[in-house]
Amino acid sequence: MKKRVASPIVLLGSRLLSPYIMLFGLYVIFHGHYSPGGGFQGGTLLAASLLLIRISSGRRISRIQFSDYLTTPLAVIGVLIYFGTGLTALLAGGYFLDYGQLPIPGLDAPDLRYWGILIIELGIGLTVMAVLVSIFDDMIRGED
């Protein structure tokens, strides 16, 4: 790349698109219970919105939006959300990942499962987003 900043039109266009893609990604995650969708699909869309900015604006600006030091912790947190949900169920006396045993008062087993699935989908979405961004970042930097 010769110039540090690419064409302003591209930058503007992607800045315009990015929030909508992100919003759609969140929709896909949360609406996964009722229509095709879920954590992976939504997480990919979230990553796409971040990567769009990264591609169009270069490293310096995109870091302001989403620092590349955040990716690994976020990915770990995503895994930990899933893992922690399973472990909670295990500690509450059920099998690992048995959402029916989650210690949330006032809900019966099917509803607990409903919420359990939602929680893990969030975790997945977070991990997928963070990992895809981190792969992109690593590849851009090359091997140093």
Partner: peptide, 25 residues
């Protein structure tokens, strides 16, 4: 009946075969 969720794929993914999904993550 098991998870009060319409999307069967989501239930299979998130609950019945959740280890697969954990593995996938």
């Amino acid at each position: 009946n098991d998870a009060h969720t319409n999307n069967m794929v989501t239930v299979v993914l998130g609950d019945y075969r959740s280890v697969d999904t954990l593995g996938e993550q």
